[in-house]
């Protein structure tokens, strides 16, 4: 894995953007870039320097959890699991879906909902179910394939 730690100024921009989109104020993680436009979050006690040293002797495959992806127009899309770990901070752009929509969503299908365009956090009761992209009249599904209910 090529390690690229996100520096403080860039982390500040990401946090500000998350705040604007979802009301998230605090990212208590070390952030790393992983693959194209993907950011991972690490909560462990090791510092950047210690992780870099470890990477010189061990073959690191991944660090922490997949947190978000940078979309076009500088929007950020939280990963399926990030919506859960940040659920206590998410205040804006939440779409509460009903049981019928949940069944569609968790099977990987888009759901028809009229709302403003942009990235939305999908929620059913107390369960946070990742993000979708609203086109105005439907939410495009981003539930990872291995997390969908099989028919």
């Amino acid at each position: 894995m090529n390690l690229r730690f996100i520096k403080s100024p860039e982390k500040r921009i990401i946090t500000e953007q998350l705040n604007e989109q979802f009301g998230i104020e605090n990212l208590p993680y070390l952030l790393l870039e992983s693959g194209k436009e993907k950011i991972r979050a690490f909560s462990g006690h090791l510092s950047k320097e210690e992780i870099s040293k470890i990477s010189q002797i061990l073959n690191i495959e991944s660090i922490g959890i997949y947190l978000l992806r940078k979309e076009t127009h500088s929007e950020l899309r939280l990963s399926f699991d990030a919506t859960h770990i940040l659920k206590n901070q998410i205040k804006n752009n939440i779409i509460d879906i009903n049981k019928a929509q949940l069944i569609e969503w968790i099977r990987g299908r888009d759901v028809s909902i009229n709302t403003d365009k942009g990235i939305k956090v999908i929620k059913y009761n107390s369960d946070f179910l990742g993000c979708g992209k609203s086109s105005g009249d439907r939410i495009i599904n981003h539930v990872p394939k291995d997390r969908r209910i099989k028919k």
Binding site: F42, H45, I51, E61, G64, R147
Partner: peptide
């Protein structure tokens, strides 16, 4: 096996882990 491990750690919300393949 690493792929399966990685998928399970993501699903369980593990954030303090470094996965190595050695």
């Amino acid at each position: 096996r690493i792929m399966i491990l990685s998928s399970n750690l993501e699903r369980c919300g593990v954030t303090n882990c470094i996965i190595t393949r050695n």
